[in-house]
């Protein structure tokens, strides 16, 4: 009798109906939070440190700032500035042999140095393929492109 009562009770219990949903997520690129322009002073200062591994003197900074302000197209101005720095013996760049012997390490280090982040898998793949497919790519040209890229100008 007790069993019948228990069974009857269970059969009357209402079953919960649960719907599982997926919370909407906005997928943004890894560098999407860097959406503010650096000032010319910030850009020059960070560029110099990335290229020479040392800080720029205040006088040099002022002159560099004036030189940049004297040319309207900032991409052209930055290109000339970086070209000038590339002519210095003091610029710190890995050798081409280092780049080619371990492209992944070179790419990871370069992203970290200029963009302060690791590359995504897609970026890493593209870069490795590019280095491996182009014998005329040098570490210097890679550094040039990173130094004068839009991401390097934003924070």
């Amino acid at each position: 009798m007790c069993c019948i009562i228990l069974l009857a009770g269970q059969s009357c219990q209402q079953e919960d109906y649960v719907v599982f949903e997926i919370e909407e997520q906005t997928i943004l690129p890894i560098n999407s939070e860097k959406n503010k322009d650096k000032s010319n002073v910030q850009y020059i200062s960070i560029l110099y440190t990335n290229m020479f591994r040392k800080a720029m003197s205040p006088n040099d900074m002022l002159d560099a700032l004036h030189a940049i302000e004297s040319i309207g197209d900032k991409q052209v101005a930055f290109d000339i500035l970086v070209s000038k720095y590339m002519n210095s013996d003091e610029v710190v760049i890995p050798s081409d042999e280092e780049m080619r012997s371990d492209p992944e390490k070179f790419i990871r280090d370069t992203y970290k140095r200029f963009f302060v982040r690791q590359p995504t898998q897609a970026e890493l793949t593209w870069m490795i393929n590019y280095i491996n497919s182009r014998q005329d790519v040098s570490a210097e040209l890679m550094y040039f492109a990173f130094a004068t890229s839009n991401e390097h100008f934003h924070y």
């Binding site: 690129p29 560098n31 999407s32 322009d37 991409q75 930055f78 040209l141 492109a145 839009n150 991401e151």
Partner: peptide, 23 residues
């Protein structure tokens, strides 16, 4: 080469209008 690499690096920035202020 510089432009090819830079174009790849600049991809999503150009789409968002976040550029080095060029003319």
């Amino acid at each position: 080469i510089i432009r090819e690499i830079r174009t790849f690096l600049n991809n999503n920035y150009v789409a968002e209008g976040l550029e080095i202020p060029h003319l």
